[in-house]
Amino acid sequence: MKLSQFDKSMVAMAFAEAGEPDTAREFLGGSTGPQKSHSPLTKKKPVLSMLIFGAISISGYVALVSNEDLIMDKFTMGSWYTVLPVGAALIFSFVHGAFSSDLLSVLGLAAKK
């Protein structure tokens, strides 16, 4: 027998009222409630994102060390060159901050909900 959407809804309501929410859910869309609750929502750990941000961050450090003299010369010129150290600190914070955040998530350290 083919049930119309209206029929399905009514049957679902009947089951729901009878205290059988899972059966009701099956009628509504075939979603399997119980199975879902067996596997509580576990967030995927941001391993890839951590690696990408980590790699950018490390290459930033490598660039800093390998061009130390040039950087120290230009970054300390004063006046408009102020943009260089302040901007570098800001950009680095975005990249390394994102890496640190992912690192803590990968380590399983998350805020209490």
């Binding site: 800093l64 130390e68 950087i71 120290m72 970054f75 300390t76 010129m77 004063g78 006046s79 060159y81 102020t82 260089l84 150290p85 302040v86 570098a88 600190a89």
Partner: peptide, 9 residues
């Protein structure tokens, strides 16, 4: 920074 005193390292 305007005085160029920040040691970025």
């Amino acid at each position: 920074g305007l005085s160029g005193l920040i040691d970025i390292r």
